[in-house]
């Protein structure tokens, strides 16, 4: 057994002359929520299709729970694709039973799991409804249940919140956390950066098939920090303030400054205190993942030219 649920090593997948996945390597720790990020067409879906055994890599290796991918693995993976659909004419209950049985559950097991989830989402009375009678958001819930019914070890969610209202978004988010607590590892693919920041512990950023960034979210943000601080204060700044400090922006009662690398935050705070200013808030500004994403993708595109 390994500590990593997923280990990718130099995975390569080409279509014609085009490398959709270009020697990608990264590990997903067990029990984590891992973000797979990248702009449109970066190769996320190609990569996911390799992991879910839909396609095979040309070269490189993928280990799931320490084992090379094999034909039994689809049963321990739950995959919710970005483009997803259901049989419109089927009844909700039958449909979910069908999908669960295809994941290797017996009819009884599927029925039990389904009872649990329908109870949990309070949708027991949907059992005999046809899928086409449900709204898009409702269908999304059915999709989610279909993805987790067979208690997968690895859950792959591609834009799981698209089309959901805030209430249902939270509902699904809570379920994701719940599953994580039970030891399920989650690979989460999206371009909604605020969600990544909120949910994921680690991320990998790919562009044009290659990894351009990988690691712990906090560490990445620290790595790309620009030593900017925001100070909210009461009183008047000294006249030579702008000459002494690198001011990024300045509003009445609030100033953002950039300090030299290696200088201590306390020195900055000291400066304000010594000049008799009341400090109401003091914080270091870390770049958002969104900013890092846009910048890094830009750099990588530039380099490719």
């Amino acid at each position: 057994m390994s500590d990593q649920i997923l280990q990718l090593d130099k995975v390569l997948k080409t279509y014609g002359n085009y490398a959709a996945v270009n020697h990608v390597s990264f590990d997903v720790p067990k029990g984590s929520i891992f973000g797979l990020l990248g702009p449109n067409g970066a190769g996320k879906t190609s990569l996911i299709r390799i992991i879910t055994t839909i396609t095979r890599a040309d070269s490189g290796s993928v280990l799931l729970d320490g084992e090379p991918l094999n034909s039994r693995h689809p049963e321990v993976i739950g995959y919710m694709p970005e483009e997803r659909g259901l049989y419109k004419k089927m009844k909700v209950g039958e449909h979910l039973l069908y999908l669960a049985q295809l994941k290797g559950l017996s009819k009884q097991q599927a029925q039990q799991a389904l009872n649990f989830w329908m109870e949990r989402f309070d949708i027991r009375d949907w059992w005999n409804k046809k899928v086409e009678e449900l709204s898009k958001g409702m269908q999304q819930k059915i999709q989610f249940i279909a993805t987790v019914l067979h208690k997968p070890k690895l859950l792959i969610l591609d834009e799981p919140f698209s089309g959901l209202d805030p209430i249902n978004t939270n509902l699904i988010k809570d379920e994701i956390y719940q599953l994580q607590k039970q030891g399920v590892s989650i690979l989460f693919s999206t371009h909604r950066m605020e969600q990544v920041e909120e949910i994921c512990e680690r991320i990998v950023l790919i562009n044009k098939g290659s990894v351009i960034l990988e690691g712990n979210v906090q560490q990445i943000k620290n790595r790309f920090k620009e030593h900017r601080f925001q100070i909210d204060y009461e009183g008047e700044l000294p006249a030579d303030f702008e000459a002494q400090m690198a001011v990024v922006s300045h509003k009445p009662g609030s100033v953002m400054v950039q300090v030299a690398e290696g200088s201590r935050p306390n020195d900055l705070l000291q400066y304000f205190i010594q000049r008799g200013l009341q400090v109401r808030a003091f914080q270091e500004l870390l770049p958002s993942l969104n900013e890092i994403f846009i910048r890094q993708v830009g750099i990588s595109n530039e380099a490719a030219k």
Binding site: T52, I54, P74, E75, I77, Y79, M80, P81, E83, R84, G85, L86, Y87, K88, L99, L102, K103, Q143, A146
Partner: peptide
């Protein structure tokens, strides 16, 4: 129909 409703995307992760 399976293709346009995208049910295949869901199915092929199982079969």
């Amino acid at each position: 129909e399976e293709k346009t409703t995208r049910i295949v995307e869901v199915m092929i992760s199982s079969v």
